[in-house]
Amino acid sequence: METGTFRVKAGLAEMLKGGVIMDVVTADQAKVAEDAGAAAVMALERVPADIRADGGVARMSDPTKIVEIQEAVSIPVMAKARIGHFVEAQVLEALEVDYIDESEVLTPADEAHHIDKWQFKVPFVCGATNLGEALRRIAEGAAMIRSKGEAGTGNVVEAVRHIRLITGEIRRLGSLGEMELPAAAKELQAPLELVRDIAGKGRLPVVLFCAGGIATPADAALMMQLGAEGNFVGSGIFKSSDPARRARAIVEATTHFDDPERVAAASRELGDAMPGIEIGSLEANGGLLQKRGW
């Protein structure tokens, strides 16, 4: 019997496909998410919208909260560690969380190095804004990739940019000849072996989810139609006026993403979405979270 193999790590992400992973701060929110059909929950100390509003250093969630959330639900519980903070990751592994998100939403702990994810039995998901970044994370041991988007904004534009970049670059690799791949690998700053694998298969070797700015059922379905295999929703649910209802609707729209009538039906009578933020206004005001990590 062998635990912690890459197949087992990437396999859990396969089982999350077509699902919605919801940010939660408390056990009560986790229960709401589970009852709405979330495929997993992400435990964090503050949702991104609050991290943005409060400022200060954002860290791994309090272990007490994580354990409460684990006790409240039976679906997988994920938790965020700061970029490069391998001890936060060790703590999360000791708590037996099901997935660790090495996340730009928290304040980075290391300006040069991401966590060596091969050292862990618990799988990691990492954010990426483009294919090169995704491949560097996979080379470090990530078993699942998500777009970064711009968390806490309720604005899907950055997530769209990132998913289009990632899928577009994958398609471009497929059009290259064997002789052109080493130069492409150099340009992407990614291992040639991974680049060759993707050029051949036309897809990432791990599951690709979307994250960052999804606030409505239509946003969720948009990301799926653009090639995401599932969605992370952060502030979009618990910063809206009726979280339980909106959560159910986003789950339904993620499943029936290619059926406009179902997405329309799911979008009705949800109350107010979270207030959105225009990305341009952020550059001056604290900057973009997606620029964290490299």
Binding site: G4, E96, D98, V122
Partner: peptide, 21 residues
């Protein structure tokens, strides 16, 4: 158990070996 307990194993499947995740 949780994900840390997820594993690969060689099974005896009706007398035939089968590698399972």
């Amino acid at each position: 158990g949780r994900q840390v307990g997820s594993f690969e194993a060689d099974l005896d499947f009706e007398g035939e070996p089968l590698h399972a995740v």
